[in-house]
């Protein structure tokens, strides 16, 4: 109670408070305005754009681009499937491998753990570059043009392993592990039954970043994937950016005949793809957000 009064007294004055709120309102609006513009464009009619350009309040609204996108959406849906599959599988393997690496690192009693710590941190500071990685993937492992080439590059991210390690060290008391051991639990059992349930915030944080990484990855597809059936959504978006015809060519003939050819959307179609592409991120973000500030706070700051 006394703390609360102290806090209320110890605050900026009303003018400064108003000013700060104005600044944050402006910043927040600036952060979402581009997104709003793209969403509006995707619902604008093509003729409206040709006559007036991109506007926040278009002359004529239209659903044609989405109509077109979903009428024969095999290309888009395929890419969606690739992205979703990759993201889900990637994230699950990701948090498991990184958690398994982070747990022994968090054990201060483990001999030689500095070696493993060094092996991890060194790659943060020095890397061989894209070219040699490309050679390793295509000439030594022969996994070019396969899903593995999209999965593997993002599997171990040292920074998040360190975040996890720090979280384990600061939130899980060694006494808990000790008592588990007295009860006869092995290390893997301790990891599954104690570490994971007690570290949900940090697992959620890392899972969020892993999800984002896999969902947003296009660079590895640019390097390794040629097969049009294996394109993830982000890379499909690049292809469409360069040539909106890419997607039209792949639409079903019948679907095209049902539309007046002159009304085939292209500008709006591109933007509709973006909206479809960021949908899952924007929708899943509030669910993760609950955890991730806590995970980041404990994990990275007290390191």
């Amino acid at each position: 109670m006394s703390k609360r009064t102290a806090r209320r007294e110890n605050a900026v004055g009303p003018t400064a408070n108003f000013l700060i709120h104005s600044i944050f309102t402006a910043v927040s609006i600036a952060c979402i305005v581009p997104l709003v513009l793209v969403i509006v464009i995707s619902f604008t009619s093509e003729t409206s754009i040709i006559n007036h350009g991109y506007l926040f309040w278009p002359e004529q609204w239209s659903l044609k681009s989405y109509d077109f996108l979903f009428k024969d959406a095999s290309t888009v849906f395929r890419a969606y499937g690739v992205s979703i599959g990759l993201t889900v599988v990637g994230t699950l393997i990701n948090i498991l491998i990184m958690g398994l690496y982070a747990y022994p690192l968090s054990r201060r009693d483990l001999p030689y753990r500095q070696i493993f710590s060094f092996l991890l941190v060194f790659v943060l500071l020095f890397n061989g570059g894209t070219v040699t990685k490309y050679i390793v993937y295509t000439r030594i492992l022969h996994i070019g043009d396969s899903y593995l080439a999209l999965l593997l590059p993002l599997l171990m991210l040292p920074f998040y392993v360190i975040v996890m390690r720090t979280f384990f060290q600061t939130t899980i008391h060694p006494a808990i592990l000790e008592s588990a051991k007295i009860d006869g639990a092995g290390e893997f059992r301790i990891f599954a039954k104690i570490i994971i349930p007690l570290s949900l915030p940090v697992f959620a944080t890392v899972a969020l970043f892993s999800t984002i990484n896999y969902w947003n990855d296009w660079f590895n597809a640019l390097l390794f994937i040629n097969d049009a059936n294996k394109l993830p959504l982000q890379y499909l978006m690049i292809k469409v950016m360069n040539d909106v015809q890419f997607i039209k060519d792949r639409m079903d003939q019948v679907a095209q005949m049902n539309l007046n050819l002159s009304e085939l959307p292209s500008e709006t179609l591109r933007m509709a793809m973006v909206v479809v592409g960021i949908g899952p991120i924007v929708l899943s973000y509030p669910f993760f957000q609950r955890f991730f500030i806590k995970g980041l706070t404990v994990g990275s700051v007290k390191g």
Binding site: P34, W215, Y235, V274
Partner: peptide, 11 residues
């Protein structure tokens, strides 16, 4: 992603 950003910038 930067791809999305490139579309936002294009708009």
């Amino acid at each position: 992603s930067m791809v999305v950003v490139s579309y936002l910038v294009l708009a």
